[in-house]
Design a protein around this nucleic acid. Sequence first.
DNA 1: GTTGAAACCGTACGGGC
DNA 2: GCCCGTACGGTTTCAAC
Lengths: 147, 147
Amino acid sequence: MDVQIVREVSRDGRATLAHLSAAVGLSVSAVQTRLRRLEARGAIRGYRAVVDPDAVGRPLAAFIEITPLDPAQPDNAPEMLEHLDAIEACHSIAGAASYMLFVRVAAPRDLEVLIRDIRQAASVSTRTTVVLQTFFENRPIEPALTR
Amino acid sequence: MDVQIVREVSRDGRATLAHLSAAVGLSVSAVQTRLRRLEARGAIRGYRAVVDPDAVGRPLAAFIEITPLDPAQPDNAPEMLEHLDAIEACHSIAGAASYMLFVRVAAPRDLEVLIRDIRQAASVSTRTTVVLQTFFENRPIEPALTR
DNA sequence: GTTGAAACCGTACGGGC
DNA sequence: GCCCGTACGGTTTCAAC
């Protein structure tokens, strides 16, 4: 039941309780209680408008792999990079590099500036892969069937 | 003005028109007109609940780079892969590989199955990088300052 | 862009299972 | 514990300006 609510609200974040109620076959009140609980437990972290990057002046996306220059140093790259608003995501990864970033900028020269900022802010080397075309992204997460 | 509305609604996708109206200093109706126009023009593509991947049984994320086995063949990998709901994003990239995927699964063995499915569906070789920890992701896109 | 009125929705509360 | 129904205040909608 909760799974179905999550699915609906992750497809349409502005769906009304009445609509959700119709979709899952519960009363509005019951849906509201479940939704509030899902939000309180952190299963639903919030709601976002999905924005077209081109429309807000960030048509160029890239992946940036990051490797600390001195592996002996304590490494707090994520905190050092958080203030750069071009960085949309930051993961630590298994592999040659330590972190994988996903970034969006307006133009190639902004990417150059960003890479320089990243290197300076976190004392790291970088390896950048430019995105040529995005076929799809941010697809709603389907609750996994396997338990 | 539109920029400010986009920023607000991308931080809180369920913000009411009344709240947006207060935030940008326009009447509720004016905000509604602008919001409808932004949606119609595709600047706002939709609204999503931000779901905790752990809570829906997909705690394991990975990047998968994809290279066609036969570069001479016409390549329609994205269409071939669209039906796999573990794939959250699919970009074509500049670099050694042709595509970069971002995927979420329940456990390592599901990743194994997924990689096999991808290889078969699209006749490609893959290179997978497991995500160890996500510091942040899906941060709201700030409209770029530079024009 | 604005105002205003009607329809709709979110919320809290009472009660039943 | 979970669910439903109702009533009220806030919200969305759409007309006229």
